[in-house]
């Protein structure tokens, strides 16, 4: 098997590049929204908080293909949300990013929420006593204190985004050269009998996963 010939083949390199772009975009969204949502879930109250908690947790307990289908119905050309969206999400790169974002979100939010429910609540009170408002306390105390939890959640979310298939299939459509991420391309390669290429693609994903595992181990060891 010629590993490097398969690796530089556009059939392999294009999904790899697409996956890297997707991870970069979804990772940025996870950092931005995951931390804020985790904070909101610990401080918010009422129906809106419960609804947010439900929606964030849903991808953990609901089959990805079904989650993708619901999003397709909501965001598709005839869906109720399609008219208010500035970009066409379905069968496009933004759709793939959204799929990765949704799939990884619970793994980002839940560790942050758990960390914020722990001893850091007392630190937040001390910060208030020392004259800092909620926003200052969030940036100066909470975020630095839970930074390892944030990083761990972020790596877990990236790992989940990397392996995402079901939602991506529904929202992205597995269009060759456009929305076929690494995970989907493994399926495509196996389906067309290119087992060596499937092996190379799996090795690439394996290397990513190993990197994430090492990062998580380092975080827990520090």
């Amino acid at each position: 098997m010629d590993f490097f010939r398969i690796l530089v083949d556009p059939q392999t390199s294009a999904p790899l590049w697409l996956t890297l772009k997707t991870l970069a975009a979804a990772g940025a969204l996870h950092l931005a929204f995951g931390v804020l949502l985790g904070y909101y879930l610990t401080s918010g109250t009422g129906f809106l908080r419960s609804a947010t908690d439900f929606l964030v947790t849903l991808p953990l307990v609901f089959p990805p293909i079904a989650t993708g289908f619901i999003l397709l119905m909501l965001l598709g050309r005839s869906g109720p949300l399609s008219r208010i969206l500035p970009v066409d999400l379905i069968f496009s790169f933004p759709g793939v990013v959204l799929a990765s974002f949704v799939a990884g979100m619970p793994l980002m939010v839940k560790p942050v929420e758990a960390a914020l429910r722990g001893d850091v609540k007392r630190l937040a009170e001390i910060s208030h006593v020392l004259g800092k408002n909620r926003w200052q306390t969030f940036w100066l105390v909470l975020l630095p204190t839970i930074r390892r939890n944030v990083a761990a959640g972020w790596f877990l979310a990236l790992g989940r985004s990397l392996g995402e298939v079901g939602i991506t299939l529904m929202l992205g459509g597995n269009i060759i050269g456009k929305t076929n991420t690494l995970s989907l391309e493994i399926y495509n390669a196996v389906f067309s009998g290119e087992f060596e290429r499937a092996l190379v693609l799996s090795a690439i994903i394996g290397a990513f996963s190993l990197s994430i595992f090492i990062a998580l181990k380092r975080l827990s060891a520090v």
Binding site: R122, I126, V129, G131, P144, T145, R147
Partner: peptide, 18 residues
Amino acid sequence: THKRKIGLVFQEFPLFPH
């Protein structure tokens, strides 16, 4: 609380770890 100019010392001496 942040507008009340108070000093507060708890029993379990929590400090900002970072």
